[in-house]
Amino acid sequence: MTLTHADTGAAGAGGDGPYEHGLTEDLARAALALARRFHAGGTMWCASPSWTFHAHHVAVEFVHPVIMGKRALPAVVVPPGADLVASLRATVRPGDMVVVVAGTAPSDPGGADVAEVMRRGPAWGVETVWIGAGTRPPAGAADHVLWLGTDDPLVASEQFVRIYHLLWELTHVCFEHSGLLQPDLCEEEVCITCSDEGRTAEVVAVDEGGDAVVRTAEGRERIDVSLIDPPRPGDLVLVHAGSAIASLEEGRS
């Protein structure tokens, strides 16, 4: 099923060309995830700190399909120049998607903000897709990491267009499989109460009495934060049985 570089005629020699091992499998998986989120009413937020035009291109593909008969889907560009984290925090809702085209810091100066957004995905309840090239982000940086091996910014930029075009095309193929757009059948209740559960939450506000209002994928809730150093609004914490048991900010520079 997987073609080699020679078969696809992709640029680059040997195994380290710009066309990465497994990229199309990742694209397929990301497309199905996006289709499920759109189907459930989610909005796609598009951003690209260093290539604003890519963010606009992604959004226009989904909103105004080039192929007749395809659905217009809600996709929005995060205003360029805005504080990416603050802007998304204010607007995303659980069930949404965030698609970003960016490299990693320091080669892409916007990469640090992007990593911050992706890290917050679980607390915001959003599905994250990180399209990029060059040095790969750490494993698990986003729900979907669609990565190119090339260090050439122009080659990367051209191939980003392919990636998001394919993402759009595959997403629409998924809409033709309505049975696969339903929530997972085997999604059975996890023991949320007692054992080793820990949910990622973002602190919204801290009370004087050692309580905080936090945001999780399930909504807002009030938790106890007296077991950890006083958090600041925007910090990520791990919540277990109504208490923050760990800060996810320590050791981060």
């Binding site: 099923m1 073609l3 193929v173 998924c174 499989h177």
Partner: peptide, 22 residues
């Protein structure tokens, strides 16, 4: 509407992406 196993769809999508990329 009753399709439940995503494996074959994912394989098709991946193959389609390969072909289009090529």
């Amino acid at each position: 509407g009753d399709e439940r196993d995503s494996a074959s769809l994912l394989a098709d999508l991946s193959a389609s992406a390969e072909a289009k990329w090529g």
